[in-house]
Design a protein around this nucleic acid. Structure first.
Length: 610
DNA sequence: ATAGGGTTAG
C-alpha cells in the first residue's frame, strides 16, 4: 500500500520536474475548463459540413490559367525544371509566380537556388523577381546579399519602388539594424518618386514590437491616426499580436474594441492572436468565448488557430486530445503543417513518450519538405532531455545532409544533452563549435553550460565562463545567479554563496522562489538550519511565497540534521498551505517511522503530508 | 497576371 503510494508520488514529482513549467510559473490552470474548451472545438468541427467548399474563387480569378499549385519544394523544383526546358521559355511572370509561392512556404533558400537556375539559363529577372529575392535574403538574415541584389537594380536600369524599399527596411529590422532601416525610411520620406505607404509604417511598428517596445509601436499608431497614414487592419493585428505574446491580453482586448469602434473589422489573425494570448494565461473560458464570437461573425478558424489549440493541449499534457484535433483537421481539409506536427512531437517529448515523438517525426520525414530547423531541434531537445545524447547527435549530423543550419536553440539543446549525460567536456567543445559556425550563445546557452559545469564539480571553470558573460553585455538574469549560488553551495562554499545572494539587489535583481530554495538547501547542507529557517521567513515577508519544493527542501534539511521535531513543525505549515511531501522527503519520513523516531501523536499529521 | 507589412511550433 505504502509502496504504491510512493510510486504515485514519484511519478507525480518526476513529471513536474521534467516539465518546462518548473522554470516558469507554477501551473494554476483549470484543466477541466480546458477540456470544455477542447470539446467545444470538437463540437464545432462536427457541426461543419464534412466536405466544405474549399474556395469560392471562380476560374477567372485564379492567379494564372494552368499555373500549377505548389505545395512542396519538390513540386517547385520539378515545375521549374520543366519550365526551363521549354522553347521558347515561359514569361518571367510564370517564374515569379513559382518563386512567390515557394517564398510563401517560407522556403527562402529554395527560392534562391531556383533563382540561380533561372540565372544560368539566361532568364532575365524583372523588378518583381528581384524584390522576391531581396525578401528571401532578408528573411535569411543575409542583408549583404539583399544589398547586392539592390545593386542589380541599377545595373539593369530598374528603379527600386515602394515594395523594394519596404522589403529592405523589413530586412534591416529583422537583423536589428535599426539605424540603416531608419536611414532608408528617411530617404523614402525625402524622395519624390517613392513615397512611404501603410506597409512602410507597419514595418516600423513591427520593428518596435520585435524589440519589445509596445509603447513606441502604439505611439506610431497614434501618429498614423492623426492623419500621417490611415492605419490598416494589419497595423492593429501587429500590435495586438505583440501584446498577446507578452500576455498583456487586457491591453490587446482594449485595442481590439478600439479598432472595431473605428470601423475596422477583425479577421482570423486578430482572433488567433487573442486566443493564443488567453490560452497562454490558461483562460480557457475566455478562449471559448472568443472562438464563439469569431464563428458567429463567420470568421472561421484556420490552420494557425487550430495550431494554437493543438499546442495548448500538448503543453498541458493532453496529447491524446491534441491528436484528436489533428484528426479532425485532416477530415475538414485543413492540412496539418510542420507547426502542428512539431507541437505534437514536443507534447510527446514533454511526457517522456519519445517513441511516439519519433513516430511523428518520421511521419513528417515521409511527407517530404515538412521538416525544418525547428522540428529537428524539437526532436533533438526531446532526446537530450531524456539523456539520449547519441540519438540527438545522429539527428544533428543528419541536418547538414538536408542543408538545414542548426541555430542557437539547436546547439543549446545539445549542450544541455551533453551536460545531462555528464559529458561536460563535449558540451564545452560544442559551445565553442557553435561560435565558430557563427551561432552566438544566448543567456539560455550560458545558463545551461554554467549549470552543467556546476553540477559536474567544475566550479572554477563555471566562474571563468561567467566572467566572459559579463564582458559580452548579455542580459544576465536571476536564473544565472541562482545557478552560480547553487554551484557554490554544492562546492561547500556557503559564505561565497551568501555573498553573491546578498549582492543581488545591488545588481537590480530580485531572488525568486528557486533562488531562496537553493540558499535554504545550501544552508541546510552546511548545518545552518536556523539561518535556513530565517530565509524561509524572509522570503515570505518579501512577497515571495515558498512552494512545495521549498518546504520539502527545508524539511529534508531538518531531518538530515537530526532535528525531527522542527521538521514536524514545518510539515504542519506545509500541510496547511496545501502542499505535500515529495518522493525523497517521503522516503526520509518512512525511515523515521520504521525506526520509531516519531511521536505517535504526530501520525495523523504525517499521513496528511504524504 | 507575378513582388512588400500582421496569426502557430523548438
Amino acid at each position: 500500500m505504502l509502496k504504491m503510494m510512493m510510486r504515485n508520488i514519484v511519478a507525480a514529482s518526476s513529471s513536474y520536474c521534467t516539465s518546462r513549467r518548473w522554470t516558469g510559473m507554477p501551473c494554476l490552470h483549470n484543466n477541466s475548463t480546458l477540456v470544455v474548451f477542447a470539446n467545444y472545438y470538437f463540437a464545432f468541427l462536427h457541426s461543419q459540413p464534412s466536405k466544405p467548399i474549399k474556395s469560392t474563387r471562380t476560374q477567372l480569378e485564379q492567379p494564372v490559367r494552368n499555373s500549377p499549385k505548389i505545395t512542396t519544394v519538390e513540386d517547385a523544383f520539378n515545375v521549374f525544371d520543366g519550365m526551363l526546358q521549354m522553347r521558347p521559355p515561359p514569361s518571367v511572370v510564370r517564374f515569379n509566380q513559382i518563386l512567390g509561392q515557394v517564398a510563401k512556404l517560407k522556403h527562402h533558400s529554395a527560392v534562391i537556388s531556383l533563382y540561380n537556375q533561372m540565372d544560368v539559363s539566361g532568364i532575365g529577372p524583372d523588378v518583381y523577381t528581384l524584390t522576391i529575392l531581396i525578401n528571401c535574403y532578408s528573411h535569411l538574415n543575409q542583408m549583404e546579399f539583399s544589398l547586392f541584389v539592390l545593386g542589380k537594380f541599377f545595373k539593369l536600369g530598374f528603379e527600386p519602388n515602394v515594395f523594394t524599399f519596404n522589403t529592405l527596411i523589413n530586412g534591416f529590422l529583422l537583423e536589428n539594424r535599426v539605424a540603416e532601416a531608419a536611414a532608408l525610411f528617411q530617404k523614402m520620406m525625402g524622395a519624390g518618386n517613392c513615397q512611404s505607404d501603410v506597409v512602410t509604417f507597419n514595418t516600423l511598428v513591427k520593428g518596435f514590437c520585435m524589440r519589445g517596445n509596445n509603447r513606441a509601436a502604439i505611439q506610431l499608431l497614434r501618429k498614423m491616426e492623426e492623419g500621417v497614414c490611415k492605419p490598416s487592419l494589419v497595423v492593429y493585428n501587429t500590435i495586438i499580436g505583440s501584446l498577446c505574446k507578452d500576455t498583456l491580453v487586457d491591453d490587446a482586448l482594449n485595442l481590439f474594441s478600439e479598432m472595431m469602434s473605428k470601423g475596422i473589422a477583425p479577421d482570423v489573425i486578430t482572433y488567433t492572436s487573442l486566443i493564443h494570448g488567453v490560452c497562454k494565461l490558461g483562460e480557457w473560458k475566455e478562449a471559448t468565448r472568443l472562438l464563439n464570437e469569431m464563428v458567429s461573425k463567420n470568421i472561421f478558424p484556420n490552420v494557425f488557430t487550430f495550431n494554437v489549440l493543438v499546442d495548448t493541449l500538448c503543453k498541458e499534457g493532453m496529447v491524446v486530445e491534441a491528436e484528436g484535433v489533428v484528426e479532425m483537421m485532416i477530415q475538414r481539409d485543413i492540412e496539418p503543417d510542420t507547426v502542428t506536427y512539431t507541437s505534437l512531437m514536443d507534447g510527446y517529448c514533454l511526457r517522456g513518450e519519445i517513441g511516439k515523438a519519433q513516430n511523428v517525426f518520421e511521419l513528417m520525414l515521409s511527407k517530404g519538405s515538412m521538416v525544418n530547423v525547428v522540428s529537428y531541434s524539437t526532436m533533438i531537445n526531446g532526446y537530450c532531455k531524456h539523456k539520449m545524447i547519441d540519438e540527438a547527435m545522429t539527428l544533428f549530423l543528419d541536418m547538414s545532409c538536408k542543408e538545414l543550419v542548426p541555430n542557437t536553440v539547436t546547439y543549446t539543446s545539445l549542450v544541455d544533452g551533453f551536460c545531462k549525460a555528464g559529458r561536460v567536456q563535449n558540451a564545452q567543445k560544442l559551445f565553442y563549435e557553435m561560435q565558430a559556425c557563427g551561432q552566438l550563445p544566448d543567456v539560455q546557452t550560458y545558463s545551461i553550460l554554467l549549470d552543467g559545469l556546476c553540477k559536474n564539480r567544475q566550479l572554477s571553470t563555471a566562474m571563468q565562463l561567467f566572467g566572459k558573460t559579463e564582458a559580452k553585455k548579455l542580459d544576465i538574469d536571476i536564473v544565472i545567479y541562482s545557478i552560480l549560488i547553487e554551484g557554490l553551495c554544492i562546492a561547500g562554499k556557503i559564505e561565497s554563496a551568501r555573498d553573491l545572494f546578498c549582492g543581488l539587489s545591488s545588481k537590480g535583481l530580485r531572488p525568486n522562489v528557486r533562488t531562496y530554495t537553493i540558499m535554504i538547501n545550501g544552508l541546510c547542507i552546511a548545518g545552518l538550519t536556523s539561518e535556513a529557517e530565517k530565509f524561509l521567513i524572509q522570503m515570505e515577508e518579501k512577497g515571495c511565497s515558498p512552494d512545495d519544493c521549498t518546504y520539502n527542501t527545508i524539511i529534508r534539511g531538518f531531518i538530515h540534521n537530526k532535528q525531527t521535531s522542527r521538521a514536524m513543525v514545518i510539515i504542519q505549515t506545509m500541510v496547511e498551505k496545501g502542499f505535500s511531501a515529495d518522493a525523497s522527503t517521503t522516503e526520509l519520513i518512512v525511515n523515521l517511522l520504521s525506526r520509531d523516531e516519531v511521536d505517535p501523536a504526530l501520525l495523523p499529521l504525517i499521513k496528511k503530508s504524504l
